[in-house]
């Protein structure tokens, strides 16, 4: 029975993937002239028609449109979650945790910028009832202490407590908070993955998450080294202590190297050799995050098409949905700020 139900969930997920935006639809969207045009197109020609059905596309606000797009994706995960058995739905819970972390980190950033009242404006309402963190209480936080008090009964409390501003260090260190929160998240995620009964499932999920970590680490090194000119000690503190394709030695070698060539070589190794994709070009090095997303996109599509494990297919679908959301946000922002269609197109990950 389990095998059959797994297959039906996989089929359902692949059907949802089949309804995702196609190249032609992206091209049509890029040619839209305004946010209402985008909303009208999504309402009339795409799978977003369900969520936008009762919305007046002429008066819709950009923020509202973005929230609705995210809500549609979330409803898709929820539909799949509905069919998952207890062993599999841990992955869904981790997705919710990631949303929680994103919202907590957004609040920390707003506290740092002394503008916490803005939090409520962008808070996705659909998360309020799903998250274990009381997001409405979190929205009321006006200091780091308030934030900690709100998270008192959650496992995030201990993680953030050590970053509480002190008399000596009164400023909030956002980067450290982000690093700790994601380290904590990956630790819990790997723990769930390693308790999976099927070997192939463990392997696939490890590869998907491991790639994500490798990409995060390499982007962090690149950002710190090339853009912020940080010293090796600072860079090491930004590295997530989970090593997959990129071994600890390789990372340390890249951090300690004096030239950027070493870093480029490392990226070439990671992208070209490990994942069998085209060599990274000189110009693409400067758009490393976009290139990394392309890699993630390729890997997830591979697993979504070929894997027989529900968790893998579900997680791959989740990542691909997030990529679609970011594509749509690129388009919305691009059209809002009159960016040329070609430039928007170059940012899209398909």
């Amino acid at each position: 029975m389990s095998i059959f139900s797994d297959n039906s969930v996989i089929a359902k997920t692949r059907t949802m993937y089949g309804n995702m935006l196609k190249s032609k639809q992206y091209e049509d969207l890029i040619m839209c002239k305004s946010v209402p045009d985008i909303a009208a197109y999504l309402k009339n020609h795409t799978t977003y028609s369900t969520i936008l059905n009762n919305v007046n596309e002429v008066t819709i606000h950009r923020g509202q449109l973005e929230v609705l797009i995210k809500k549609q994706a979330f409803e898709n995960y929820s539909k799949i979650y509905h069919y998952l058995n207890n062993n599999e739905n841990a992955m869904f819970k981790m997705i919710i945790e990631e949303f929680e972390i994103l919202e907590i980190l957004r609040m920390i950033l707003l506290l740092k910028a002394n503008n916490p009242s803005e939090f409520i404006v962008s808070l996705p309402g659909f998360l309020i009832s799903k998250c274990r963190v009381n997001l409405l209480e979190l929205a009321k936080a006006r200091s780091f202490d308030d934030l900690l008090e709100c998270l008192n009964n959650t496992h995030y409390y201990k993680v953030l407590l050590k970053h509480k501003p002190t008399y000596e260090e009164p400023k909030i260190n956002y980067i450290s908070c982000e690093h700790s929160m994601y380290s904590h998240f990956f630790k819990r995620l790997f723990n769930i993955i390693n308790h999976k009964s099927k070997k192939s499932e463990r392997m696939e999920l490890n590869r998907l998450t491991g790639t994500r970590l490798d990409i995060l680490n390499i982007c962090n090194i690149y950002r710190e080294k090339v853009l912020f000119k940080s010293n090796p000690g600072q860079i090491k503190s930004r590295i997530f202590p989970f090593f997959r394709s990129l071994t600890k030695d390789k990372i340390e070698e890249a951090i300690s190297s004096s030239s950027s060539d070493q870093l480029n070589k490392l990226m070439q190794d990671l992208f070209s050799n490990n994942y069998k994709i085209n060599k990274i070009s000189e110009t693409e090095v400067y758009y490393i995050e976009n290139y990394a997303s392309r890699l993630k996109n390729k890997l997830c599509k591979h697993y979504l098409h070929l894997s027989n494990n529900v968790s893998t297919v579900f997680y791959a679908f989740y990542v691909l949905s997030q990529i679609e959301i970011s594509n749509l946000i690129y388009i919305i922002e691009g059209i809002r700020y009159k960016v040329s269609p070609n430039e928007i197109k170059s940012l899209l990950i398909k």
Binding site: Q64, V67, L68, K71, I120, L123, P124, G125, F126, I128, S129, L136, A139
Partner: peptide, 9 residues
């Protein structure tokens, strides 16, 4: 939106 109604509190 119904989500905003939840936020109104």
């Amino acid at each position: 939106p119904i989500d905003s109604y939840l936020k109104s509190s």
